[in-house]
Amino acid sequence: MARYGMLINTKKCVGCFACRVACQMANGLQSDESFIHFKEEETGVYPNVHAEVVPVQCMHCENAPCQQVCPTHATYTTDSGVVLVDENKCIGCKYCMAACPYGVRIAIKETGVIEKCRFCWDGSEVGNPPRCVNTCISGARVFGDLDDPNSDISQEIAATNARPLASHLTDAKIYYVR
């Protein structure tokens, strides 16, 4: 069984928002609803400054805190490690939003369901690749099976020493090069 994850290389991300808008269209989100959030980081003092854009979305954590607190089991994890929301079970209590350390769960205005990135899950499989990866103009995103040492993502993680953003918070499946 695959265990899906993603790599985001912020050294290649120019912050064009392609992933956000492509994701919105594919997932039927409103303009002000987004599964992908962008953190602008600026470090240093003029003229020795570094700026980066860090796209953040559901990290598909192992033992996801949002899943642990979800009272209705609307949030669940597939055998392939994808954290999903069963919109027919979600009551919109927002407990998952409070529990998510990354603040990436959002309320869908139309339904009140608390949604998030699902790696473009189509009902039986993940997107191949998900829309954000498919449209990334600089190849900053890599998607694949973390358990397969020969997958692009495993190779890339090894080559770049990519790590999750905050391993002290959760065991995330999105790896970052920063």
Binding site: C16, F17, A18, C19, R20, A26, T135, C136, I137
Partner: peptide, 21 residues
Amino acid sequence: KTVEGMGDHPYSKGTLCGRGH
């Protein structure tokens, strides 16, 4: 529903930027 970059186009090379979408 969606748009995506045309694979063979020399400018998009299979991807579109944010304003494209």
